[in-house]
Simulated scan of single mutants.
Amino acid sequence: MNSSSLKHSAASLFPWPRTLVTGATSGIGLALTRQLAEAGAPVLALGRNAEALAPLRAVHPHIEFIPGDLSDLASLEALAADLVSRYPDLACLINNAGMQHNVLFDQAECTAERIRSEIDLNLTAPMVLTRALLPHLRSQRAAWVVNVTSGLAFAPKPSAAVYSATKAGLHLFTEALRLQMQGRNKLQVVEAIMPLVDTPMTQGRGRNKLPASEAAAQVIEGLRTGRDNIWVGKAKGIPWLQRLAPSLLARILRGG
């Protein structure tokens, strides 16, 4: 299937196929879970807080809560095998879970353990989970891997050195996987690039934040129209600023 026909299939598959959303109990992940369910998609909501999903599951009983700790990298192969066994129609993975320790790199709070935990959750876990699910996804009629990154992948801010590095890594991983998959199967690899979004992670910092519900809606619209790169909200200006005003882009993102 060529790129144009694959994108056409994305537009025609709504209601969306069964989708695994990581970090589904908060922020963008919770909004994605809600809106996908409202669009008719059966959703596997992976997270650690079942109570946060209880009201939503009462309205959309086809949402399945999947307990899981993505920081436990050794458990992800078994988790993926269990999901494939229980849900053979799983056809979309949205790697959304993430954390940000908003500290300067030379502060005492920036410990080796914090660095490792941020890298594990933001970068290593999406790679490991994608790799574990890849054979199954490639066997589907059409399938998607969606990696949620950030404008900070393109210009970092001082108090999020590790987070910025992990999102830059996830950005390049997405591009590399997309190149590897070209012409080989029906798997579309998508990057959703976020601006500053109003979530529990960003509480108390930044202004004019995009509501999580709007960020999720733009991701879903990008999937509906078959885009490989979904620039969300103010992040739409990043490609233009990269070419014409990179120093301005750096100043803008330093304040996020």
Results as ranks from 00 to 15, higher is better:
residue 120 D to K: 01
residue 139 S to C: 04
residue 203 Q to G: 09
residue 245 A to R: 10
residue 69 D to W: 00
residue 83 L to V: 02
residue 27 G to H: 06
residue 144 W to C: 11
residue 102 N to K: 13
residue 23 G to V: 02
residue 9 S to I: 06
residue 232 V to H: 03
residue 163 Y to L: 03
residue 52 A to W: 07
residue 110 C to S: 09
residue 27 G to Q: 12
residue 63 I to D: 01
residue 247 S to W: 14
residue 81 A to E: 13
residue 199 T to K: 02
residue 198 D to Q: 10
residue 131 R to E: 15
residue 247 S to Q: 15
residue 15 P to D: 03
residue 39 A to S: 15
residue 138 R to H: 05
residue 172 L to G: 12
residue 59 V to N: 09
residue 231 W to G: 05
residue 186 K to A: 15
residue 189 V to S: 05
residue 226 G to R: 06
residue 183 G to W: 12
residue 26 S to E: 13
residue 142 A to D: 14
residue 250 A to K: 15
residue 168 A to V: 12
residue 253 L to V: 08
residue 65 F to K: 04
residue 32 L to F: 08
residue 229 N to W: 10
residue 162 V to M: 08
residue 39 A to F: 03
residue 13 L to I: 14
residue 163 Y to Q: 07
residue 26 S to M: 06
residue 93 L to N: 02
residue 59 V to M: 13
residue 127 M to D: 04
residue 31 A to C: 01
residue 104 L to I: 12
residue 35 Q to I: 12
residue 63 I to L: 01
residue 60 H to A: 02
residue 70 L to T: 11
residue 222 G to P: 02
residue 51 E to S: 15
residue 66 I to C: 04
residue 240 W to H: 09
residue 127 M to W: 01
residue 141 R to C: 14
residue 37 A to R: 05
residue 51 E to F: 11
residue 162 V to P: 11
residue 221 E to L: 15
residue 172 L to W: 13
residue 19 T to N: 08
residue 199 T to E: 08
residue 233 G to P: 00
residue 227 R to K: 12
residue 187 L to G: 07
residue 234 K to D: 14
residue 51 E to N: 14
residue 109 E to I: 10
residue 12 S to E: 14
residue 136 H to A: 08
residue 147 N to L: 10
residue 213 S to G: 14
residue 184 R to Q: 13
residue 103 V to L: 13
residue 153 A to T: 09
residue 35 Q to M: 06
residue 233 G to I: 09
residue 121 L to I: 10
residue 33 T to L: 09
residue 65 F to A: 06
residue 64 E to H: 09
residue 30 L to A: 08
residue 253 L to S: 06
residue 117 S to Q: 13
residue 153 A to P: 01
residue 100 Q to F: 06
residue 44 L to R: 10
